[in-house]
Structures are given as C-alpha cells and as structure tokens.
C-alpha cells in the first residue's frame, strides 16, 4: 500500500528538492569539467519537478499567449532596468553559454514559480505560494551568489512570484528570466 504524505508536507518537500537540485548544480560546477553539460542537466532536473501537473496548474495554459509574451518582455525590462541605466559596456555571456542560460532559466521558473508555487498555493493559499517560492528561490541561490546579491535575487523572486499570482501566468516569468539571464 502506498501512503502519500499530506499535501502540505509534499509542497515543502518539493521546495526542498528544488533547493537541493540548485545546490547540487552549483557544487558540481566547482569542477571545471563539462560545465555546460552540468548546467543543462541541472535545468532539465528542475523541469522534472513540474511533471505530473497539468500545464494550467503550472501557469502554462496556452490562452492569451501574445499577452503573456508581452508580459514577459515587460518583466525582462524591469529586471534589466537597474543594470541598463548603469550600463557602461563590458563582457557579455559567451555564445556557448546561451543555450545553457535558457535551460537553467526555464528549469528554475518551472520548479519555483511553477511546481513549488502550485503545491504551496494548493496547501496554504496564494500568499504562502508567493512568499514560500521566493524563500526557496533565494535559498537556492545562497551558494552561488555573494551575500550582497541575495536581496536583489529575493526581490526578483518576489516580483516573478507576484506576477505568477496576479496574472496566473508562468510564460511571462520564463520569458523575462531567460532574457535577463541572456543579457547579464
């Protein structure tokens, strides 16, 4: 007989799994070998957390796609604005890392604003979904980012989570996140 954990416990477990996957990816990257492969595998593993849920539950319904895409552009604009106004040139992401950036961004959105958000919302309501997915997302970046960057990471998570809740949409956060990662 299979005994399933209560939905709330499953939601917390899902959030923990997403954080652990992100930390595992960061730790694996400390080896200089096959970094691109590690990153792509990390992105795909995060996407797997969304398996078993209907697209609509994850915010990926196909309705109003143009509006969702425009929303994603708006989110990208907001995410990049602080860097854009201080732009003075500088290195950009190497082309070979572009595919990697797309895989990781999509994986993070499907995991945190998709699966974790949906599970927390079903169990504890929308506020817990926004705040809980933001907390997990920030924790997931604790190993890869210096502490002074974490407030901006948390605030970006809060913004993307708020969009997910207010618009019931994950396409916008995916588009915004991918563009921001490609730009920086």
């Amino acid at each position: 007989m299979v005994v399933l954990a209560p939905a709330g416990m499953r939601a917390v477990g899902l959030a923990a799994m997403a954080v652990i996957l992100e930390w595992a990816r960061v730790l694996a990257l400390r080896s200089p070998d096959r970094q691109a492969l590690t990153l792509i595998a990390g992105g795909l593993a995060l996407c797997l957390l969304g398996v078993g849920r209907r697209p609509a539950e994850l915010g990926l319904a196909a309705t109003r796609l143009p509006e969702r895409l425009i929303g994603g552009l708006a989110l990208a604009g907001i995410l990049l604005l602080p860097a854009a106004v201080r732009w003075g040139g500088g290195p950009v992401l190497a082309p070979e890392f572009a595919v990697v950036a797309v895989a990781v961004s999509i994986g993070e959105e499907v995991a945190f604003r998709g699966a974790v958000f949906a599970a927390l919302e079903q169990s504890y309501g929308p506020a817990a979904a926004v705040l809980g997915s933001t907390a997990a997302w920030t924790l997931a970046h604790a190993l890869s980012h210096p502490p002074e960057f974490l407030p901006a990471v948390a605030a970006a998570g809060l913004l993307l989570g708020a969009w997910r809740w207010a618009v019931r949409d994950l396409v916008g956060p995916i588009v915004g996140h991918v563009l921001a990662d490609l730009a920086l």
Partner: peptide, 29 residues
Amino acid sequence: RAALLALAVVAYAIAAWAVAPGFYDGIAP
C-alpha cells in the same frame, strides 16, 4: 493584484539598485 504587483516592482527596483549590476542570476559561479 495590480497594487501588490506594483509594490513588488518598487521593492525590486530598490533592492536591485543597491548592488551593481542589479539582477544577476550567476549561471556559473
């Protein structure tokens, strides 16, 4: 919903302005 979203935008702008360049996802450390 619109008001809370606007609040999130303002919170992000303040936090991202505090550290250059702002949003940084750090694909690789």
